[in-house]
Design a protein around this nucleic acid. Structure first.
Lengths: 334, 334
DNA sequence: GTGAAAGCGCTAACAT
DNA sequence: ATGTTAGCGCTTTCAC
């Protein structure tokens, strides 16, 4: 029946070891200037009392917490950028603690404000929605923040984003180079920043290439019916598309599912690499994001911002890479 | 050129508003016993100074942090239990901060100890490896911890686990009920706790049913070659299996990939529901874990442990459910 | 209602 | 090389 005993503090350890508080602090922080014999006595006292230092007090005193927050859309989803963020932070001796925003603006705000009150040294944010006004006072009060995947609309904050425009251009040009003249685009809801950016880039490509634009671009929420009709529209009519560019990994999966065996008859380049898509079609050619570079850059930017809050804002665009696997190299079949 | 200004504290706000420190504290904590006019003055001062309360100090003073840690194998992987944990914690007014252990015992230790030093109120852990001795002093010092998915070997701590044995039994019995006499099992590396538990349960089923046991059970690390030969071994020989039970979601995917079109000729029941597996074979019958129950129970257990460190340890087993989709209801084809 | 002061557990001047 | 002490920003008795 262990009653909840008051946790021992440095004072208790000092008393137990018969030394001064300062000496315990030195031992705990691996300060070399402490005598071997005393150090041993302190360590014995620590073990005897099950003493565990309290970082809250340490952080309060120090001013910094050595902690970065990551506010991401969904922790329990595949998120290679988050993994890269964790690794880069670890390499820099920083701890990353993450929480989900669940694509909910209200929850995002709760999470970010919570991290601010806990005085995390900085925050990596996958921003949701349009209105990030709540960030203004936090930034004014000293918050260091880096946006990932999309910018914080209306606010001048550091961010690191994939080169969506170049990715779409590469995909389009690749298909054209393989003889395709009628390329369709199936993308996600354009209320999502990246979806809009990619669709816009595609429209520009299609317009530059000549031929119909709007008839070739199908965007909207990911719903079974919508994907089905988009695929049908793309491949039907007097001038059916011979190639498709998909707007993100989820879209790729849905399109491939609808296409079934027919997917071998149409050239496809997907945006985003993903296990899911390549399961359905192992030879899927994709425009892959450089997750490691994104995560690493995010940490670099955040550390620079923490070191110098007055430094100019930087918006980094990370190159994407075309991964040729076969589906994007098919010739047109009309 | 904003120089890094010292963040304003409650003292500054009090001075600005011309009130006592105590009053600011009351306003910040929504204490009703403060006059409307004064409260307004305080709020104005807070806005004017961009004052943000510091939870480090608050938590230090209060003793508790209102924070739960989640140390999971990989943040950026699909993890429905983690999602359920976050939701249940949120409903209880607790914040969950998560970090990856990357299936690395050393990193797990770093993460857990780090959370302890930060005085998180409790920790949810997906334990890795065999040796969790480092937890002993933490538990002695007052750590509240709940293990999820597998127990902490050798330590008497709360945990919540799926009913692996019942799941395997259900899968086996289901196939037998559909006329199968020769059922094979393909599972993951038995050094993984759940993999071993499931394989053992399967052996017991096979033995009870009669017929060969060892020839029907194939376990080991997930490698292309190993899965290929396991599938071949299961379906070859004079008495080939007419049904297969797979040990987890990853195994299901690999087996389905190897089987290809042949998968329609063999009955299959997978362990774990998963988008990946059902992509390959949309009608995959599975033994599904109750993620919501697991996450909710984990939070319940953790809160109970925090409230009463002396309460008896509980090891909860959560029932699994057979989801019939077709692949497990195929008759034997010999 | 308000104000002064102690203390949460730690670090870092500043002695010695 | 070790001890003393102030203070990080907050909450909370305890008088008023």
């Amino acid at each position: 029946m262990t009653r909840r005993p008051r946790r021992p503090t440095m004072v208790d350890v000092a008393r137990e070891a018969g030394v001064a508080l300062r000496t315990v602090s030195r031992v705990v922080n691996d300060d070399a200037t402490v005598g071997a014999e005393l150090a041993e006595r302190v360590r014995a006292a620590i073990a005897a009392l099950d003493y565990r230092p309290d970082e809250r007090a340490r952080h309060l005193r120090l001013g910094v917490t050595g902690t970065l927050g990551a506010a991401v859309r969904q922790l329990s989803h595949v998120n290679p950028v988050l993994r890269a963020v964790e690794r880069a932070a670890r390499a820099a001796g920083l701890m990353v603690l993450a929480a989900s925003t669940e694509d909910d603006e209200v929850l995002e705000r709760h999470v970010v404000e919570s991290m601010c009150r806990r005085r995390f040294d900085g925050i990596i944010l996958e921003p949701i929605g349009e209105d990030h006004g709540y960030l203004l006072p936090e930034l004014a009060a000293g918050l260091s923040l880096v946006a990932v995947d999309r910018p914080v609309l209306g606010l001048d904050v550091d961010c690191v984003i994939s080169d969506n425009v170049a990715g779409i251009r590469t995909a389009f040009a690749h298909l054209v180079a393989h003889g395709h003249d009628r390329v369709a685009y199936i993308g996600d809801d354009e209320r999502i920043y990246t979806a809009h950016e990619r669709a816009t880039a595609f429209r520009a490509c299609a317009a530059a290439h000549g031929g119909p634009v709007d008839a070739m671009v199908h965007t909207g929420r990911i719903e079974p019916g919508r994907i089905t009709s988009a695929v049908r529209a793309a491949l039907a009519g007097p001038a059916p598309a011979t190639a498709i560019v998909t707007g993100n990994a989820s879209i790729s999966v849905e399109v491939l599912r609808r296409l079934g065996a027919d997917s071998r008859k149409v050239a496809i380049v997907g945006f985003d690499d993903s296990e899911l898509a390549t399961l359905l079609r192992p030879d899927l050619t994709v425009v892959a994001q450089d997750d490691t570079a994104i995560g690493g850059t995010a940490i670099d930017l955040l550390r620079a911002r923490i070191a110098d809050p007055a430094r100019p804002v930087s918006r980094v665009t990370v190159p994407v890479e075309l991964v040729r696997r076969g589906s994007g190299e098919l010739p047109p079949i009309s």
